[in-house]
Design a protein around this nucleic acid. Structure first.
Lengths: 214, 214
DNA sequence: CAAAAACCAGACCAATTGGTCAGGTTTTTG
DNA sequence: CAAAAACCTGACCAATTGGTCTGGTTTTTG
């Protein structure tokens, strides 16, 4: 309890909460909220069902707790970008960040995607406001880059949508990708996909790809 | 019955089937398969629940019928592209096609997305094989373009993934887009988004945007 | 026009499943 | 070390919901 930013807690409750959240992330990603059975989460976490309800008041409560944890992943270096920064560097790093999340936390990405597709019924208006505010400030920075001549004319919204869409695709649509490629993408392929994506988007914006991303 | 390519049938059954499929598309897109209630589909279609089960044997049967209809939307002009065609023309048209589907059939796109995110549990292996075959042939054409010097070096997989991801994003994530833009995208904005996307991707590939898409 | 086919719908049911409860045991704490 | 807090869990329940059944009515067809 105490604090959401609490230091590592090795109490039995804290350990179980982590196990449950991990199990829930997998189940919700595969079956969606309605399709997920509390019993299956319990099985995966190797705990009796009643324990799940003990730690999280309800299925809803568990889902909400998980969603909140997932939303915290959305922070990145791009949050603090300024007009004086180099757009090529900032955007390349942002794309790389996003791809890394897709690689390491595909289930988190899927749950977020499911939530949005279903009309974001569980995203608090607090989050939405926060997100809109974030968006406005990032759009402003991109527009400043354009005014400063650091970036050719482009609609900032469509640029950001493109970055999100194409990076999250590797998590959300992994089943399709695996099917078409004939195998799951490994770390090496992710690195190639990231390079490819950075090149496509930066070049698409008329920017030069920084050396370290080539 | 008779033939899936049957001519317009105005029998009472045919009309009801269309009404039911339309209602189901909306419900499944919002609530997912498990979250959708047959009763809600019935309410939306303005028919008693038992009629839904009468026309489609079961909820599963209805979903599968709907999914099949949705998959038929995936066909496009790109299917017949040849090495001798102009990549800029072909890809621009393909992107425009995809964006048009996102605009006109967002619910269809969402249902497909939900299906893939959940691991494609209902996509027949027939569809998967067909899809893989399609992919191989399209990858081959793109590689020929590269060999012919009509297209700079690029991994065809990542190119296609990018096109799908960024175009489908406008349907699947419409809730987020509406929230961030402050309003739903209208036809005019879709046209701008399409131009923006075509420019980004073609330029990203090192191609020149054909005049009619500028 | 009669019979077959298609269509309609209220009543009902069995299975699933999120959640409660009561009575524990273990761990922490003052 | 005792009491409080945290943790654990089998038994149970109420509500939901996909689907059936039966007895119709309407439409089509030979």
């Amino acid at each position: 309890m105490s604090d959401s930013l609490s230091k590592k807690d090795d109490s039995i409750g804290a350990i179980n909460r982590v196990k449950i959240l991990a199990a829930a992330e997998k189940e919700f990603a595969i079956h969606g909220f309605k399709g997920t059975r509390v019993q299956h989460i319990a099985d995966r976490a190797e705990l009796p069902k009643t324990n799940i309800l003990y730690y999280f008041k309800s299925k809803d409560g568990l889902y909400l707790a998980l969603l909140q944890e997932i939303l915290s992943l959305w922070n990145s270096s791009f949050d603090n970008a300024k007009a004086q920064d180099d757009p090529a560097q900032v955007l390349a790093a942002y794309i790389a960040d996003k791809m890394e999340i897709s690689r390491c936390r595909p289930d988190a990405s899927k749950i977020f995607a499911l939530e949005i597709i279903n009309g974001a019924p569980n995203l608090s208006s607090f989050f939405k406001d926060q997100h809109s505010t974030w968006m406005n400030s990032r759009v402003a920075v991109i527009q400043q880059w354009i005014e400063l001549g650091k970036l050719p004319e482009i609609d900032p919204y469509y640029l950001l949508f493109n970055i999100w869409a194409s990076s999250q695709h590797y998590a959300d649509f992994s089943a399709q990708i695996t099917e078409l490629k004939g195998h799951e993408m490994d770390q090496n392929e992710f690195a190639n996909a990231t390079k490819s994506l950075i090149k496509l988007i930066l070049q698409g914006c008329g920017l030069t790809v920084p050396k370290q991303y080539q």
